[in-house]
Amino acid sequence: MNRDQPSPRAIVQTLHNLRTVLPPATLLPSVMRLTGLADSYIPLETPVGTVFVAWNVRGITAVMRRDDVGNFTADYLRQFQRQAIAADATTANALRPALEATVRGERKAPLPFDLHKLTEFEQAVLRKALEIPRGQVRPYGWIAREIGRPGAVRAVGSALKHNPIPLLIPCHRVVLSDGQLGQYAMGGTNIKRALLEVEGAEPETLETLAQQHVQFYGSDTTNVFCFPTCRHARRVTLQHRVTFGSVREAVASGYRPCKVCRPA
């Protein structure tokens, strides 16, 4: 026998030792994601600071503003009963531009959202909020009326307060009927004001109008009245602009509601 040939025992021993190999750290997370037992997340820089955006196969589940990732993952697990695992770099890089464009208001195509755990009413409220263009605001009562539940203004406020996907579903563009900015789920009125400022909705003007009890702008050339942030209201020059404190006042003056922003 050749002296260089390894002994059968050495062969078996070496084979046995081939079992000691560590699986890659990416294996468990990808299995949990592919089975739908865990969701993915990425951190995203926004005008209100770092937020964490989470999603699963159905769509985006949450946007949370947290100081650090540990707080986020703990809160996410508590709220959704599923783990959130950091997305791999490829996925993160593929998704980030779409999220950033949505936050900047440059993306028209809607993102997929996973709202299936919410009630039909809550879903309707959030989908309606998605229709409010960047740089504009609508009152809670507008959403209630638009979704066919004009009496449910408080419930609309509650649904928006519990919006799991703020920023991407722009609940910050919904304000009190008198034009006051109102509360904001992701950090209070100051954050809401800052966001609207960034978007060009001129929150200080809105607050001034609220103090003056102005709810609508009209044009004396078209006899149409709008919400002050409607793009049609913005086109009216100062000399042709008239202001109204209520729908009744506008209608009594012979004005009809704008067909784009639908103030009544």
């Binding site: 699986p23 890659p24 294996l27 468990l28 949990m32 089975t35 037992l37």
Partner: peptide, 19 residues
């Protein structure tokens, strides 16, 4: 329990596939 199952078996299944 599935995560615990994967944690328990991932090393074996991976080594098996690698070899």
């Amino acid at each position: 329990a599935f995560e615990a199952m994967v944690l328990h078996w991932q090393q074996r299944v991976y080594a098996f596939a690698l070899r």
